[in-house]
Amino acid sequence: MQLFGSDVLAVAERLTDAYVEVFTAPPWDHRDPAATRKAFRGRLEADAHRPGFRAALSLSPEGEVDGFVTGWITQAPFPADRAYGKVTQRLGSVSVDELLVGAFEIDELGVRERARGTGLGRRLLSALTATAPGGRAWLLTWDQAHGTLAFYRRLGWHEPKPLAGQGTDVVVFLSAPASAPPGRTT
């Protein structure tokens, strides 16, 4: 496993290849690979310069990216672009400020099919969240990614209570408390 800051851009093409393979397969198979490639590459080039950006990659013996995770420290004010508006809608601005601002935000986590079932996703996530400020980390995922939802729940990540009547197609997870064993939610 290799850890990166903005120097991740040196392996951007290989990382983008892995991203497209992961995020155009079920349940994301409705996405166009060319559009997904272009969008991710543009985001990566910008995100790599965010305060606190980090990435962890697992490379195959051939140098291909088998798995990846990226993230950064969520800054104030809480953003409104991308899916952030849905997060604020789901949790409310008070909870967003209390729970997410200042925490480490997992932006992308993916493991290629050939490397799944090996614990790689768990190891990548742990590598990036190990130094989260105050042990606080968060992420969001699509509510139709059932395997992904189950994965985070097995690791002990938990969902903060949404505002009444404020459902969205994203699910927010908070990292497991350091004392909680994997597989147990709080």
Score class of each variant (00 low, 15 high):
Glu105Thr: 11
Ala76Cys: 06
Trp72Arg: 05
Pro61Thr: 05
Arg112His: 10
Asp66Glu: 15
Thr88Asn: 06
Thr118Met: 05
Ala80Asp: 08
Gly121Val: 14
Ala115Val: 14
Glu105Pro: 00
Ala80Gln: 13
Phe68Asp: 04
Gly63Ala: 11
Thr88Tyr: 03
Ala103Glu: 13
Arg90Phe: 04
Phe78Cys: 05
Gln89Ile: 06
Tyr84Val: 06
Gly117Tyr: 01
Arg112Glu: 14
Asp97Tyr: 07
Trp72Pro: 00
Ser95Leu: 08
Arg90Gly: 09
Val65Lys: 00
Val69Arg: 12
Val87Gln: 00
Gly71Met: 11
Ser58Thr: 06
Ala115Arg: 12
Glu98Tyr: 00
Ser95Ala: 10
Leu57Pro: 12
Trp72Ile: 01
Glu108Ala: 04
Gly102Met: 07
Gly67Tyr: 02
Gly85Pro: 01
Gly85Lys: 12
Asp97Phe: 00
Gln75Phe: 02
Val94Leu: 05
Glu108Lys: 08
Thr70Met: 07
Ile106Leu: 13
Gly102Val: 09
Leu99Gly: 07
Leu91Ala: 01
Val96Met: 04
Thr70Lys: 08
Glu105Phe: 05
Asp97His: 06
Thr70Asp: 13
Pro77Leu: 02
Pro61Ser: 10
Glu113Arg: 13
Thr74Cys: 11
Thr88Trp: 00
Pro61Gly: 09
Ile106Arg: 07
Ile73Gln: 00
Ile106Cys: 12
Asp81Gly: 06
Val111Thr: 09
Val94Phe: 04
Ile106Val: 15
Val65Gln: 00
Gly85Ser: 14
Val101Ile: 07
Gly71Val: 10
Leu100Ala: 08
Leu91Gln: 03
Leu59Val: 10
Gly63Thr: 07
Leu57Ser: 10
Thr88Glu: 04
Gln75Asn: 01
Trp72Glu: 07
Pro79Glu: 08
Val101Cys: 00
Ala76Ser: 02
Arg112Trp: 14
Glu105Gly: 04
Leu91Asp: 03
Gly71Ile: 12
Val101Pro: 06
Arg114Tyr: 11
Glu98Phe: 04
Asp97Val: 02
Gln75Ile: 09
Ala83Cys: 08
Gly63Lys: 13
Ser95Val: 08
Phe104Ile: 03
Asp107Ile: 12
Ala115Cys: 14
Trp72Asp: 14
Val101Phe: 10
Pro77Cys: 03
Pro61Val: 03
Gly92Ala: 01
Leu120Asn: 01
Ser60Pro: 14
Pro77Trp: 13
Phe78Ser: 02
Arg114Met: 09
Gly92Glu: 02
Glu98Arg: 12
Ile106Lys: 11
Arg82Ala: 13
